[in-house]
Nucleic acid binder design. Sequence first.
DNA 1: GTGGTCTAGACCACG
DNA 2: GTGGTCTAGACCACA
Lengths: 126, 126, 126, 126
Amino acid sequence: MNGEAQVRIDLSSPEPAYRQIAGQVRALIVEGALAPGATLPAVRRLAIDLGVHFNTVAEAYRQLAEEGHIDVSHGRVARVVARQVPPAEPEKVAQYQARLRNLLAEARSAGLTREQFRELFEGDEP
Amino acid sequence: MNGEAQVRIDLSSPEPAYRQIAGQVRALIVEGALAPGATLPAVRRLAIDLGVHFNTVAEAYRQLAEEGHIDVSHGRVARVVARQVPPAEPEKVAQYQARLRNLLAEARSAGLTREQFRELFEGDEP
Amino acid sequence: MNGEAQVRIDLSSPEPAYRQIAGQVRALIVEGALAPGATLPAVRRLAIDLGVHFNTVAEAYRQLAEEGHIDVSHGRVARVVARQVPPAEPEKVAQYQARLRNLLAEARSAGLTREQFRELFEGDEP
Amino acid sequence: MNGEAQVRIDLSSPEPAYRQIAGQVRALIVEGALAPGATLPAVRRLAIDLGVHFNTVAEAYRQLAEEGHIDVSHGRVARVVARQVPPAEPEKVAQYQARLRNLLAEARSAGLTREQFRELFEGDEP
DNA sequence: GTGGTCTAGACCACG
DNA sequence: GTGGTCTAGACCACA
């Protein structure tokens, strides 16, 4: 998976590394780039590739496992799981609306126009 | 500003409270809901309204002041500043693309469809 | 909470320490010994009391937080949350039946009679 | 023995596979479903039936042999042994009480009522 | 003050 | 080989 360097982290970001890793792997899964059954790199392997401690990667994998995205068990390689997403509760939707709105505001105060931001979204087809 | 409860925070979110506050106030400014010259609520007042420690609100205001969105130097009231937004550097744009992508992935894994997510964006006209 | 030493762990058990801690605190909550709103000991405090590293306690708290039993956020003390338990799915019930059956079998092979085991259950009224 | 699929394991459980297998076979022996002298399935056979590596089954058998429940010394087939159970030490009893209590707490936090849990126990007559 | 994150590395458990 | 757990302790973030 990461021979092509599909995961990149920024240690200077306020976002913790383990959550960046989880977020990017989650994105690959949700977008279908990592299909059900696909194997993930070993935690120690990916850790070396990313230049972090293996515990950091393990933490990311653990979070994905809790969400049901991947299956990790003792002694076995981590694998993507075929998962059915439950329908989103309205409460969740509102929460994401707030988060999207905040992200947009932050982007605009960093100099992006609303149009630029929309293009980021449109140009991101899976 | 907050008589109409335009700011709401979710303490159970992984996003720290002070950044939620800053993000939402920043959104109001960037969208024009808070015009240059407008006064912001007093730190202690907003803190009470939101049910957080006033240090938390102060931290949010401090960040907005650092970004140049508000001015807190004249006496006690914070005022919105007319600010020039510099054009976004390509590096910044890429960073926001990554963040948007992660947010979308998280939303989708929480049950939102891509279409639902887009609607969140479209339905958020300033 | 732990002035009365309500939590005890056995490091020689195959059960990891953090899961023992989580299990016992969960028991106190479910049984009502720790009511909603009650504060839990600070992770570093409980760690000292139990003779483990604070990371171990933090791991237990994190698990309880994920389950929705407690509320932990940055800078705040951990508190028990008023939680509504969703109805148990049949699949879950079967899983616990298997686990109970295994525990009983293990107990019997360790010398407990079936009757002794039942008394353990009956004598454990909250 | 396993033509009737009396043993089932759940790979997603935190309980390791080998211990699940040992636990369930032990249950069958203690409950009398597998009488002294009965033969157990070959390691490789059961491994195939359960979809696990045969080392996993071998580990389970090894543990049962160590406990004195089965005998693997005569040739290749494992046989159930007539065994004297020593009376349980009070320390052991307390240990099982703790484990039962934790299991109950976990079950209740998963949505089972205390009554449902008791029924699991009652409905499990050998 | 509180909890969160990360590194470092030992040692274990599992398959 | 794989992942899991724990310790040790630094340093950060938050209220």
